[in-house]
């Protein structure tokens, strides 16, 4: 999945919003803002220009290009919805939709549930597990490209691949070419993406559990509640906001994944690991079918927007 650190911190549905009501916020009255139009424009103009060039313009231009047939250096030709029609008749593209869905859901489910489970475990020994949490969180700080190389090294099909060496030891004959088999390549990528992504839900959920007031836990403990029931009835519900944030960030990151696929499989074997985000790159930047690639990007964009509706509503409402 694509590294989404910035979004993590800046996310609206942040864990802290749970105690949002705990402190009185300034009322958003119209009156108190200083009316200083010239100064304001002076301050935001550079932002508007840069943002316009790198976000607004590309957005509209991608949309515009998706209605043209552009191949290499040949002149652009208006084709209306032609690219979209071709796209949905293209078995390769339909397959990338499915691949994207599996990759996105797989990574999210595995990394979030594993991270959540680990956070619950750590909550029972918060001090003694600190170094271990650190070790798992650190993998989140390794870039996707580098993570990809690390795992290529582990998954190698020859004798130098650690995974096969271990499996081969216990179950002779079960050594496998994980990235070469179309049936396992995608799941290998999902596993690697989850490996590098698990640190985020782990830390978010752990932080949520840690901020449960001690008095609540002590009271429950005094009442004779078993650790398992404390976990089920107090920790798990109270860490849900963290889980929600982690799920959202994971979905966004997995949908836009590129680096890890580029480094590990190049979309292969037999296109088994080609997601929409990678298909778009291949069609537009190696085959130079810019219009066709743009149409695929628009499809990706629609998927992203659908997933983001709740977050967008929340942000918009909160933008005072």
């Amino acid at each position: 999945m694509s590294r989404s650190l910035p979004q993590m911190v800046a996310d609206p549905a942040d864990v802290s919003s749970r105690d949002g009501g705990g402190r009185l916020r300034l009322p958003a009255t119209r009156g108190w803002r200083i009316k200083e139009t010239p100064a304001a424009w002076l301050l935001i103009t550079p932002v508007i220009i840069l943002f316009g060039i790198s976000v607004v313009y590309p957005l509209f231009d991608t949309l515009r290009l998706s209605f043209f047939d552009i191949k290499g250096l040949a002149p652009a030709k208006w084709v209306g919805f032609g690219n979209y029609v071709t796209l949905f008749n293209d078995a390769t593209f339909r397959n990338t939709l499915l691949t994207t869905l599996i990759f996105t859901l797989g990574t999210t489910v595995i990394s979030v549930s594993l991270g959540w489970a680990l956070a619950m475990l750590c909550a029972f020994a918060p001090v003694h597990t600190t170094p271990f949490r650190g070790m798992m969180f650190v993998t989140f700080g390794i870039s996707e490209a580098v993570s990809g190389y690390m795992w290529l090294n582990i998954l190698r099909p020859d004798k130098a691949g650690l995974l096969n060496a271990i499996i081969g030891n216990f179950i002779p004959g079960f050594a496998h070419s994980w990235l070469g088999d179309p049936n396992t390549a995608l799941w290998s990528l999902i596993f690697v993406a989850s490996w590098s992504g698990v640190g985020l839900p782990l830390m978010l959920c752990f932080a949520a559990v840690q901020s449960i007031p001690r008095t609540v836990l002590e009271a429950a403990y005094m009442d004779g509640a078993k650790p398992t029931s404390i976990m089920r009835h107090i920790m798990m519900p109270l860490s849900l906001p963290g889980v929600r944030v982690a799920i959202f960030i994971n979905l966004l990151g997995a949908l836009r994944a590129f680096d890890i696929i580029y480094v590990m499989t190049g979309g292969g074997p037999v296109r088994a690991t080609e997601t929409v985000g990678y298909f778009m790159y291949r069609e537009s930047m190696t085959q130079f079918k810019l219009g066709y690639g743009a149409a695929a990007t628009v499809v990706l964009l629609v998927a992203v927007l659908v997933i983001s509706i709740p977050a967008i509503i929340q942000r918009t409402a909160g933008a005072k």
Binding site: P157, D158, A160, S177, G180, D181, V270
Partner: peptide, 22 residues
């Protein structure tokens, strides 16, 4: 040959032949 999955993961053949001697 090796199983298809092995072939599909190999980018360069020298190690298989000259180092691992498979």
């Amino acid at each position: 040959c090796a199983p298809a999955a092995t072939m599909l993961a190999i980018e360069e053949p020298y190690p298989t032949l000259y180092t691992a001697e498979e």
